[in-house]
Nucleic acid binder design. Structure first.
Lengths: 378, 378
DNA sequence: CTGTTAGCGCATTCAC
DNA sequence: GTGAATGCGCTAACAG
């Protein structure tokens, strides 16, 4: 938007005035044509004389006109339909936060009538994912929001949508080789670097003499392909931080069989006792609170835990002091941004494609936890 | 908003459908009255029979109706005028970020025609503040956004606006005894606690044997009354963190005469040499990078600096490694939230008053700096 | 008290 | 090719 500064000094203060938005009627008047002609030009649906076109484009470029998407939607007198396919998840879990963001955005834009169809699938069941993805084109949506767990299935859905010329937006993960209208995700390797720094910081407290310190990365093994790629990127980021900081050879790794509590507990405790120099643990998967709980129940209080994702469990772990810090990838913001991108794409008819919306990554500790939930309250 | 879940199982996935928004005409039809009557009820501008009122309210409550603020603004066929009075500041400074947030929101809501008049004043010149504040009522604005530096002047402006029944929104600082439509600010004491934790964390790296560690709070003295109140709250927060953590008697304070570079440098260096146990410094004012620069130029590399506010200078200091962490109070979000609150207040005719919008507080380090700017990109 | 009416910015249809 | 006319959700003025 253009802002015209009309500054004059008075007393000791300056005044600015915002420019008024021009309307289509106004543009038409200035160009000496009718509103209908301007509209035809804006939507390039033909049958306009070169003379009229030149006149209108001149006014358009000089005035910095932007159409009012809300009245535009009213004029269209039809809603849009958006299909969403993401993994199912319980309240307080990661994918549920993305869903919250989507719902929030639909709410925020409730004046644009949007019919949103959701097809959930089981993150660990490739067949349910195929079924969900196959049902998407059948819905004949105007746009699709895709949260991928299985790369091949996602790619095939993207290609199918490309063929049908239906725009789609990716959340949480980018899919190489696809041509989304937009993708909304956090840079996992950057998250890893941030995690590395926090792992290092929380692990150095309180200072202790002698011996060099060690830091642990805990990976919970059960997960789908996309999640594994993400955790690999996080791991690489952590290594990158330590390597850049010149702290070599201090990272230890441990895997936790996520679906076997007894075995998990055994291997974590064994690891801790075998590695007394470990000063802090980063839990790469979303279940930091489970590892933290195991440590707490076994009286291990001097090994702070760093977790990923502000899930219900991690949040409670942070409040209880069992978790020291959480890296937040803003899943709600991802969902919200995806819906906004879809609306933009549908209402502005000639939008750019393949826009990457990189999420902010935040460190949540006990002190700022109470303030971190209302980022996009209305 | 009400969401109706219309779930049916198919393949292995669930479908949900969003509810359609009802229109005023639809409400009128359901209640057996005309649209005009519904409108009168929605804006309680009287002359409605009890019977009609009851019928409409019934439909209203059952349908969870929410009016479309954008077409509403169109129907009003008039723009609103908002006056903004905040301290002047250069690009990249704190108040400029608030202004950015305001401009961003005006842009986001450019379809609602808003005429925004800005009256800047000099943060350190009470006379310019009086002049700016006195000019506000003259503008006859529909709503006012106030950024206060001088409590008395702000209070008097608030009272004057109260008398005239003009809603106002406070940014950055709350003003006791006023009745704003909303206030948008960060909890400074909470920021202090967060700063305390970070000060402690960055100060404990690398671990060192013997002697207990000390931590410093650096206060730059030149500032207006409101800022002094804020820095006092931050200081209290830092003390609170250390006291709760059971780390007693380890905080040292130093004041820096902000307008005297030579004197600042002298007193900081003197302080550092007199306090060799100091492990890290929190700069309470917005000019952390100046202190950081003094340390860097004098070869003091083992005392990490914690700063407040993502100003241009602090941002560069962080990138250059002279500053270790920055506490961000999201000034842009404050400005944006203020405008949104104003719009809400003006368009929904019966809004609640005195809503506190508490900002999130974030820790910015080198690793997440590149991702922290686009929180509310459209 | 109430329904009707006109008009806002936009998109579309339909004569000319 | 083009402008006029219509309708969307909403508000406000007006006539009964």
């Amino acid at each position: 938007m253009k802002i015209f500064y009309n500054i004059r000094i008075r007393y000791a203060c300056e005044y600015q005035f915002m420019a008024k938005q021009l309307t289509i009627t106004e543009i038409a008047r200035l160009a000496g044509v009718s509103a209908g002609t301007v509209d035809r030009i804006l939507h390039n649906r033909g049958k306009v004389s070169d003379k009229a076109l030149a006149a209108v484009e001149k006014v358009l470029s000089e005035s910095g006109y932007r159409k009012n998407i809300h009245t535009s939607a009213v004029g269209l007198r039809k809603g849009f339909s958006i299909a969403v396919s993401i993994p199912n998840s319980d309240r307080g879990e990661y994918w549920n936060a993305i869903l919250n963001g989507i719902n929030h955005a639909l709410d925020e834009f409730s004046d644009i009538s949007i019919d949103c169809k959701l097809a959930f699938y089981n993150q660990f069941d490739i067949y349910s994912c195929r079924a969900a993805f196959e049902s998407i084109p059948e819905m004949k949506p105007d746009a699709v929001i895709i949260g991928a767990s299985f790369p091949e299935e996602a790619t095939s859905l993207c290609l199918s949508l490309d063929r049908k010329n239906i725009p789609y937006i990716l959340v949480n993960t980018a899919i190489p080789g696809s041509f989304p209208a937009a993708s909304c995700y956090a840079d996992q390797e950057a998250c890893g670097k941030l995690a590395g720094k926090m792992l290092y910081l929380i692990g150095s407290t309180p200072p202790q003499p002698g011996k060099h310190a060690e830091y642990a990365i805990l990976d919970s093994s059960l997960s789908d392909t996309c999640t594994r790629q993400q955790t690999a990127a996080r791991k690489a980021g952590i290594r990158e931080f330590f390597s850049r900081a010149g702290i070599e050879n201090c990272l230890r790794e441990i895997t936790m069989p996520a679906m076997n509590p007894a075995e998990s507990e055994r291997s974590i405790l064994e690891f801790i006792h075998a590695h007394p120099l470990v000063k802090s643990i980063a839990v790469i998967g979303p279940r930091g609170y489970i590892a933290a709980d195991i440590l707490a129940r076994n009286g291990i209080r001097d090994v702070p835990v760093l977790a990923f994702d502000l899930t219900e469990g991690n949040r409670k772990g942070l409040q209880a002091g069992m978790i020291s810090a959480i890296i937040d990838l803003h899943p709600e913001l991802q969902g919200r941004t995806a819906v906004k991108a879809a609306i933009k794409h549908l209402l502005y008819k000639t939008p750019e494609k393949n826009i990457s919306h990189l999420m902010p990554v935040d460190i949540i500790v006990a002190e700022n936890l109470p303030y971190c939930k209302n980022i996009f309250l209305e």
